[in-house]
Design a protein around this nucleic acid. Structure first.
Lengths: 351, 351
DNA sequence: CGATTTTCCGTGCACGTGCACGGAAAATTT
DNA sequence: AAATTTTCCGTGCACGTGCACGGAAAATCG
């Protein structure tokens, strides 16, 4: 509990009757040391309980590390733009530790582009990698390569249970967030039917947190409101006209529906429609505080947003990697589930 | 994004036509520098964007820091013994950074003993403090003193919204955990009445997470099972006979009750009674994986434990303080709500 | 036994910053 | 103007480790 004994390699050298050069060779076991000397030194180290001075070591080593960050391409106003914004702050913090960061992006709907980005990362031989994995199989191949090269990696957003073992995961408990979402929608009253809006291209992706969110959502409904009918439609992320049409079709068939939910960050896609067809008692719940979503929240078109703060996830991921690379410290827990905040038009000012 | 320019104080000295001694005086503004020189140096620093090398700085400074940890006295087999067990591991990790830890304990039912411990801590002038606050007023006085001395502090277990501002908080969202607790009890069926067992001395404490847990619990019941009657009894933490008597009295009056919950870690107190009066369909939910509780879980007397891993809370708290003291890094978020794990006899092996 | 290779080890500088010491230059006093 | 004080600044060592270099001692070879 007390402290301030500081054993240096000089002490060890003196007590073992050798020089600090030899002690150093033993410590980093890089040979050129006789068996007798080796054992002598080891004995003294054990006895004194030597622990190297990290600062001196790092100062002398003068090493530069690099962290590669692998995210979907951040389209303006998108979820991944939020995530990307966390990089800069983290990068600045880690810079003083001799760590530089590089962002690699890929098309979140193209496995080919993901593979390409992975290749880029590998060719740079980074000291650590942050990954937001969208493609299960390709990611598994990739992290296998990383494991072979003894490169630690951290997942953000989505977790894959990869064999070699990830250093950490920072993200939301996807299932729970869906569950939470349902509890919000059903907060006021029993609901007879509601609309789940999905995005066409979601089907193309293999690993998708929205799937688990939907599962959590459905479980909540089943448990608390089993009579409720869930209806789905698909809208296009790129074609507003098609989206409009889909919504029109739906509401002409089911005009009584008053609850809408989307499990991805694109709730803003349906905002134009809602503005053209205002309904006072509409409950609209979506995810993530994209500027477009927040604007809709302010207007009142969207009722609630579940914000998951991807920028914090990325920040923490980078920090965990840095700690491990520089100090060999593993995070206390591997799976770190971050907060979800519930944003309404009333608590928005705090942001 | 790239890097590897490394500006040293030598560079600054050279470019400003002065010596590194002067540059150093400017950087730490400790005077003995003419105005002209000062400005010249500052200009060069700004221009080159100098950032000190943390390792060299810390190596040269050769400073030793101390962290004081202020917890309730860890009685054998108690909750706080669990918490205390986290200290050792953290201490070992932080030792390499020149940080030593000291544990101060107090009687969790005696404000006087808390004040005493606070005084001890203050007299040691630690570099940082970890506090598990049991007494609201006394804690506020204490942290005010800390703030005056510019000593950072971190809360574990319970958070107080103290004015000066805590560096971080690591603990459970108490309200939520009570809510969760209720959802477990009501998992299988609608419940008509249930028993809340409380501990006599709980009444003496001012700041108590069990109060918030109870609130969360009651809210869940009101929302999901409004017909349910909540009954309370008090048992003694020290007198098994009295405990037995209280339970006997209760169950002779309400023999039909089949659900029991306790919001503190002492569910093991009622285990002897339950073993003497076995009932097959009894649901018993408590908190924390104390060895006595876990044993009861294995036996089947206790159904579920909500585990909050106090050792992790303490570990993380120490780490956050260390990072701040040594590197001036604040945690990404101040309020860190940790996981709660649900322990049943079936997933116990994973532990 | 001398020549050559191999094994093994000590010396010394570098990393960048902090800080004590001493001394030159300027300002003030006598 | 000399003496004294104050202001200001440069020099140099220390922190503990990493690593290159060169050389002594031991082993091997001719």
């Amino acid at each position: 509990m007390s402290a301030s004994e500081k054993i240096t390699i000089h002490d060890i050298a003196r007590l073992s009757g050798l020089s600090k050069g030899t002690v150093d060779r033993v410590l980093h076991n890089r040979g050129e040391v006789s068996k007798k000397s080796y054992e002598k030194v080891m004995a003294v180290i054990k006895e004194l309980g030597y622990e190297p001075n990290v600062y001196a070591s790092l100062l002398a080593k003068q090493q530069n590390y690099s962290i590669a960050i692998l995210l979907p391409r951040p389209e303006p106003g998108s979820y991944w733009e939020l995530a990307t914004s966390g990089i800069e702050k983290a990068a600045e913090e880690e810079k003083q530790f001799g760590i530089s960061t590089t962002l690699y992006t890929y098309d979140e709907y193209s496995a080919e582009s993901f593979r390409e980005a992975c290749y880029q990362v590998l060719s740079q031989k980074p000291s650590g990698v942050v990954i937001a994995p969208m493609f299960q199989y390709e990611t598994q191949v990739f992290v296998q390569e990383l494991a072979n090269s003894h490169i630690p990696y951290v997942y953000v957003d989505t977790k894959l249970d990869t064999p070699g073992g990830y250093l950490a995961f920072y993200g939301l408990p996807a299932y729970k967030s869906g569950y939470l979402c349902a509890s919000i929608l059903l907060m006021k009253e029993k609901v007879k039917e509601l609309l789940i809006v999905r995005v066409t291209r979601d089907k193309e992706r293999q690993s998708d947190p929205t799937v688990q969110r939907r599962a959590g959502f459905q479980d909540y409904i089943r448990e608390h409101n089993p009579g409720c009918t869930l209806r789905s439609i698909f809208v296009s992320p790129t074609d507003p006209a098609a989206t409009d049409e889909a919504l029109n079709a739906f509401f002409s068939e089911f005009p009584q529906v008053r609850h809408i939910v989307m499990f991805n960050s694109r709730i803003h896609l349906i905002v134009p429609f809602l503005e053209r067809h205002p309904a006072k008692d509409m409950w609209v719940v979506g995810f993530d505080n994209l500027s477009a979503n927040v604007a809709a929240l302010k207007e009142g078109t969207v009722t609630t947003l579940v914000a998951q703060h991807p920028e914090l996830q990325v920040q923490k991921a980078i920090h965990a990697l840095s700690e491990f690379i520089v100090f060999k410290r593993k995070p206390a827990v591997a799976d770190n589930h971050m907060h979800m905040d519930l944003l309404t038009r009333y608590n928005l000012e705090d942001y």
